[in-house]
Design a protein around this nucleic acid. Sequence first.
DNA 1: GTTAATAATAGTAATCATTACTATTTAAAT
DNA 2: ATTTAAATAGTAATGATTACTATTATTAAC
Lengths: 126, 126
Amino acid sequence: MRFSKQRELIKNIVQETNSHPTAYWIFNKAKKKISNISLGTIYRNLNKLNKDGIIDIFYDNNIARYDWNTLSHDHLKCNKCGKIIDVKMHTKELQKEVWNQYKFETENIEITISGTCKKHMNFKEK
Amino acid sequence: MRFSKQRELIKNIVQETNSHPTAYWIFNKAKKKISNISLGTIYRNLNKLNKDGIIDIFYDNNIARYDWNTLSHDHLKCNKCGKIIDVKMHTKELQKEVWNQYKFETENIEITISGTCKKHMNFKEK
DNA sequence: GTTAATAATAGTAATCATTACTATTTAAAT
DNA sequence: ATTTAAATAGTAATGATTACTATTATTAAC
Ligand SMILES: [Mn+2]
Ligand SMILES: [Mn+2]
Ligand SMILES: [Zn+2]
Ligand SMILES: [Zn+2]
């Protein structure tokens, strides 16, 4: 794989945010540095970076989100503000349990918990 | 909500399979009974049935799948044969932990484990 | 430094899943 | 039977992503 300033930029944009951005968000950010960068270039490179293990992809409903954090982890998604937060909820235990109960060989575990984050909660009393 | 034979058929198709079908699969199945049923009718009714709590929707990568099983449960997805199997992996414990650690109010928990099912595994010895 | 080979790009067209629109049909209350 | 509005079929539109293609740019060899 040969160097390109577009790919370098895209990689940096993903690695500098915790927001689990979409391709379109990355596209708009990238345009500020390379004004004529194309959306196809964004997608092509995000997929390439993912295949090389540089970044992660996961799907939030029907749209892809990109994650600098390639270590196995989980997500809390707030239905009020849309924020997606990294958490660590599952352990090697779960993988063992899946093997013991179902003889299923785990490759990847994804836990997504949706609900309301503390910022957007209405407390009964103050 | 008024009766319609289209909705009745769609509901029955979803409730008679464990395959977590896509809208398109349901469409083809439905056409065998009502040959001119439209794909829009499939989607409209699947969404309606979901809003009424009759069926569940979840996303497998970027495509919607429909589930007769509306009780909270998890899925094993085999990367070899594509089969998606119902399992029960999470308990109320997890919800409590999310609250204690993050003050996050859980609405829904989704665990998807991908890997290889026992049918498609190569055992080292017989 | 120049040349040659080809990976990567910008711009655009195409695809796939899903939703929106609209004239017509149909369930069901009166 | 008449009336009212929910539901439908058929089609158009949308949004996310991938495919295509002529041009540009990186890198290795000379
Ligand atoms: Mn993350
Ligand atoms: Mn299920
Ligand atoms: Zn929030
Ligand atoms: Zn399998």
